[in-house]
Design a protein around this nucleic acid. Sequence first.
DNA 1: CCTTGTTAGATTGTCGACAATCTGGTTGTG
DNA 2: CACAACCAGATTGTCGACAATCTAACAAGG
Lengths: 230, 230
Amino acid sequence: MGKADFSPIADTTRRAEIVALLRRAILTGQLGPGQKLNELRISEQMRVSRAPLREAMRELVQEGILTSIPYAGTFVIEVTAKDIDDVYSLNKVLDEFAIERTWKLRDQRFFDELDRRHEAVKQATRHRDTTRQIETALQLHGLIHEWADNSVLLDTWQRLTSRLQMYFALHQQARNQAVPAEDIHETYVRLLKGTDMRAAQRHAREHTDLDFEELLAYARGFEQRPSNGA
Amino acid sequence: MGKADFSPIADTTRRAEIVALLRRAILTGQLGPGQKLNELRISEQMRVSRAPLREAMRELVQEGILTSIPYAGTFVIEVTAKDIDDVYSLNKVLDEFAIERTWKLRDQRFFDELDRRHEAVKQATRHRDTTRQIETALQLHGLIHEWADNSVLLDTWQRLTSRLQMYFALHQQARNQAVPAEDIHETYVRLLKGTDMRAAQRHAREHTDLDFEELLAYARGFEQRPSNGA
DNA sequence: CCTTGTTAGATTGTCGACAATCTGGTTGTG
DNA sequence: CACAACCAGATTGTCGACAATCTAACAAGG
């Protein structure tokens, strides 16, 4: 049968592309915390007028990775240890909820997708591609939120993810250390495949395979440090 | 001493005022679900150009009460029973978390504020002011999120609150029934003042004094019903 | 020396006009 | 009648220019 399920076509507005560009620049650390976004300069660089750029910036402000002060400018959010702790602690709660909601909905497609994403992380790890490693790890952890069949939860988690990705990128960028070779997501995946939901939730609450403790310790270091623009 | 701590002055940009106006119009039900927002018409009514209006609309899109389709328009979100259920279930999780975080931070100022907001609800109830009753009830429940000392949690909760307020307004508007005279928040306040945190959390999870069950039943009624604009 | 008033430059906020796109009706054709 | 191509109107997306506001440097006065 001619049954092909098409995905929605791409948003063909400049605004959407600008949002994607800016978000990527921030989440990869090209735009550092506290840095000011000069509208005229950016609009000229992108060959775009200020109108769609400003609209894009409003979106990112609401997304929580930019902050705006009227007549002063729009800046990349500052990162404090408390911010990271706030995001992290809430993230754990959402994880527990997502696991609970996803649990009964797990099927073969879920397990397949879980393996696929897990494999993507392992591949990025082998290639020593730290940026992609962060990205894939977050995608792996995002599966339960996508599967939970709760659009508001997914929305909320994606908002947190933006920040998480930014934090990890900063951390990685500053340390630039060798990535862990072992597979730290092994337990997480195994528990999600198992039959003990409580165990999976406990794992999400207590043991984190996204290495937050180190991230926190690091963040306490650059507290109050002046952020120099690029 | 001349020590007066000033709060930041109000945002004096048109954009901010437009956001407030539009939000109020949506949350009070003046703009119904599915309704299209004609930029030219609204900008003329507000005596404002389309630029700040469009920026304001981007904010509300990210806030989750508007939805935008490129080259087609921006619309007030549709309300389905599932949406309400999604918001409601996530809200309960956030409540539990907020109670946990707030618990150790409770002090006299907290209890005073709790009483103050509780009193505001009772007053609105006495005056049969249903709109204000919704508003004050949500403010009462918001205290634990404000007190939890987690800016991300507060952000998230406020986003959900926008929707909750909209749902309740629709419900109230359609039914237009007499408001309950009894004080349904009595237990909630009492538990928050007590010493048993688990009991307070259980109450948040199991018994809801914001009457969601009825709201849900109602929402299932206008599923798929065409929304006529004003 | 410190404070206050002024001013020039840069940047953000807002405006009105034009371009791109969608919608619905109309027309022509089989 | 069914259907596709086309066209006119309305609406959204984008642009360049102007107005409002902020910042920092400088001068004047105590």
